[in-house]
Nucleic acid binder design. Structure first.
Lengths: 199, 199, 199, 199
DNA sequence: AATGAATGAGTCTTCATTCAT
DNA sequence: AATGAATGAAGACTCATTCAT
């Protein structure tokens, strides 16, 4: 029973183009990634891209969507709503940091695309919605149990998000060869976050 | 005693172009800001820009440098190396947050340019060097006094930097009309940071 | 007794494609009618078109040929060479005007294709040849009977042709909903033509 | 006292491009006249065209406008509203025929552009407005004096227009080398028209 | 020094045509 | 025979940069 409704080779083609785009933009930047190069990198004709994506803008948006979806999924892996607040906090943000840390390309890509006016704000927010909701509820419950500081949810969330993302990014810039974040290091960073937000 | 070697009106011209560039890029993005528009916005001919900046890349780099210099200066305002660690910590990062918070345009600009491969890493680091050194020393001393967690300086610095920057940015996105950060709010955010890094 | 050498369904396919092409070009113009749209409109794959027509140019030429053939046939309907000059004159040009008037799509199409350098002059002339010959002979006989002005046949023919075509076209432009030309109106127009050419 | 508000060389450039466009479209057709060829033919860079015309569509529209304006002016040359109907009729349509006859390029161009969906109907009508008004008034007066048949003005106008245009066009097609219409011939054609419309 | 017209390489995108299935 | 995915050449248009005035 195949879960995909589309034939295999179609999915491959689309994915092939998305991967080529990701590699190219991560390396050269959005403006230095013309469709002709994307095509060459994806081993297809320029026109082929337009069978899968309406415009370059659409292509970039879909790439962003895929990156975000993967990140959301990674963050919520093994996440158990029944667990205690601290475990849930460490799970989500640990997942987040490990994901960013072990995928330098996607990390750089997300930073670049997030900052780019090429993707509209509304779309960005929408893509992050699933994770945002989960984090929002976590903070709500944490506040009820008086574990967290009494600051706006958005503030606490962005604080953690921004700090971990910055560190992952910095790490990539310093060591071009990127060994995955070790357990010890990740734990320390999560402690920083926890100490920050806890009441 | 004039510190500038160039005549006054020349500086004005240069500054005029930089401001026009800043406004345009902040509003439209780097790729949607052609030199012709910059020229129009700066009320000068397109050719004139090239008397002050070698290329568009150079113009953007110089803009980034100016933004960074201003941010560095803002951060170190009233900074007293003789003061105690906590005061110094609150001074620098308070300055930083207030600067980001009250200059939405520059905040958005720095995010965009920082993420852009149009400016090379080396150049970015260089521009931040003065602030980095000061923060580095602050953390060193803090560690000596066993006030800070035993994590790499880079980590502690990026943690604070990234979290505050993210919050400022988020704030701008949410409320397009940007009232400057009030004292109370800023204090709370600095407490978050301090709690995070303190031993 | 089937006059056609090709099997029935093949003809249908070909006709289907020609009709789709006609509708599309009439509505969107030649340049805005790509083969892919023609295929979709004809409910077949793009490749299928090339089994019936060598190139797009060929397709358009064949369409023009069909339109012209139909027009020629329409003009010569009930045409009796034994009738008197005036009757024959009114028959041919009456048929012509009614045909143009009641087929706005084909009228617009012929105008567009006639004006297009995409179809060469030689081909256009050839397609009109049957009608041209008949008209030519009519004018010859009319001149013999001193009913017509002593002007070149081509001139007299084009005069009538051009004037009626222009009026039909204008009519379509003015009233987008096109009721077929009524008898009275047509009669008046033919009177104009007759008065023009008669000696 | 210079009637032109724009500097001389600007006008030249624009005119240069319009002429190149006219020649190219007349020879190759609209679809076979890419901007790159227009540029080469006008001896300028492709980008230069866009300083004078917003898009290719705009360029073609402006060309059509110029052609129509020239035709309108030609038609109304020596036209005296105080003259008698017949003289006015012969003046306008004689001018028209001589203009079409002696400018094969513009004649072919107008036919092609008139038939093209690239220029919208509204624009076409607008361009012809001055001449249309004059002809309209002429026919009104003619009818008052019971010189003309009682048919709609539009019909009488299009009849004359269409017939003369068709003949001019035909003439060009037949003799590629185009001697200007001689007096005798023109007079005969106008007689055809006059006989057609007169009561 | 200042201007802005001119340039043409480079960008995105379309589309006639082919060919593997 | 029919399909439609793939191709890549070609088109419209943009824009960093130059240079004559």
């Amino acid at each position: 029973m195949n879960i995909q409704s589309q034939p295999r080779h179609i999915m491959d083609r689309r994915e092939q183009i998305l991967q080529a785009t990701a590699n190219l933009i991560a390396e050269c930047g959005l403006q230095a990634s013309p469709m002709s190069k994307v095509a060459k990198s994806a081993c297809c004709g320029a026109g082929t891209i337009y069978r899968y994506f309406e415009t370059k803008e659409d292509l970039v948006r879909e790439l962003y969507k895929e990156l975000t979806t993967q990140m959301n999924q990674a963050c919520l892996q093994d996440y158990d709503r029944a667990a205690c607040i601290k475990v849930r906090f460490y799970t989500i943000w640990g997942n987040f940091y490990r994901h960013m840390s072990s995928n330098p390309r996607d990390c750089a890509l997300m930073e670049q695309l997030s900052a780019s006016p090429a993707i509209c704000c509304h779309f960005k927010d929408e893509a992050m919605e699933p994770l945002r909701q989960e984090v929002d509820q976590l903070i709500d419950e944490g506040k009820q149990q008086q574990l967290f500081k009494e600051l706006p949810n958005e503030t606490l969330a962005m604080f953690t998000f921004g700090s971990l993302a910055s560190i992952a990014k910095k790490q990539h810039n310093m060591a071009e060869q990127c060994q995955p974040a070790n357990v010890y290091e990740t734990q320390n960073l999560l402690n920083l976050c926890w100490d920050a937000v806890k009441a």
